Amino acid sequence: YVTHDQTEAMTLADRIVVMRAGHIEQIGRPLDLYDNPDNQFVAGFVGSPKMNFIKGRVVGHDARGVVVELAGQEKTRITQPLTGTAPEIGSPKIGSKVIVGVRPEHFGNAGEGDADLVVAIDVIEHLGGTSFLYARTANGDDVVIQRDAAKVPDTSEITVSIRKSYLFDEKGLRLR
């Protein structure tokens, strides 16, 4: 069965083949694609709203992994463990640009995660029990934040957790 509707595919399929420009990007069960995307294309394609992508750069390495500074928020750093990066990708070098991926439902309240960042909220979409906050980071990356709370200030501090974030290199390949 072929569909361009990812919601339909996630609902009906036992296995999904995600293709782009005639090439297979990833094959897997719906939740495996959602929870463990191989690249930025699959991460952004599977899920609604799509995964958020925040620019960053590698500023160091330590025993826990690669240290990433989020663009526009120089004091906001996250250490991402790299346990299984493919040999052809390797560990990113200091100064390399990277992308941190976070699903809308995985942003937490400030102080509850590994790295807090300030966002400016542009629009709040109330959908009953769930609200989506459309916001912008200090460097201009657009993000969507899923919240249960209906009352949110104009500027908000949120947090990113390393356990619930993804790291991609400049080419969009997942760093693990």
Rank of each mutant, 00 (worst) to 15 (best):
T3Y: 01
T3P: 08
T3G: 03
Q6C: 06
T7A: 15
A9F: 08
A9G: 03
M10Y: 05
T11M: 12
I16Q: 06
I16N: 11
V18N: 09
A21P: 01
G22W: 14
Q26I: 05
D32T: 11
D32K: 07
N36R: 15
Q40A: 12
V42K: 14
V42I: 14
V46T: 09
P49F: 05
K50Q: 10
M51S: 11
N52R: 10
F53I: 13
K55F: 06
G56S: 02
R57C: 09
V58T: 08
V59E: 03
G60W: 03
G60I: 07
G60P: 03
H61W: 13
H61C: 13
G65V: 11
V66N: 06
E69A: 06
G72N: 02
G72R: 02
K75A: 12
T76G: 07
I78F: 04
T83C: 01
T85E: 05
T85G: 05
A86C: 09
P87M: 09
I89E: 14
G90A: 09
G90C: 06
S91G: 03
P92C: 04
K93A: 15
K93Y: 07
I94D: 15
G95Q: 09
V98H: 10
V100I: 15
G101K: 03
G101L: 11
R103F: 03
F107A: 02
G108L: 10
G108T: 12
N109I: 15
A115W: 02
D116A: 01
L117F: 07
V118C: 00
I121Q: 00
E125L: 02
L127F: 07
L127H: 02
G129Y: 08
G129K: 08
T130V: 15
T130E: 15
T130S: 09
L133P: 00
L133D: 01
L133R: 00
Y134H: 12
T137W: 03
D141M: 01
D141T: 04
D142S: 11
V143Q: 04
V144A: 09
V144N: 09
V144W: 13
A149M: 13
I158R: 00
T159M: 05
V160P: 05
V160D: 01
S161G: 12
Y166Q: 12
L167P: 00
L173I: 04
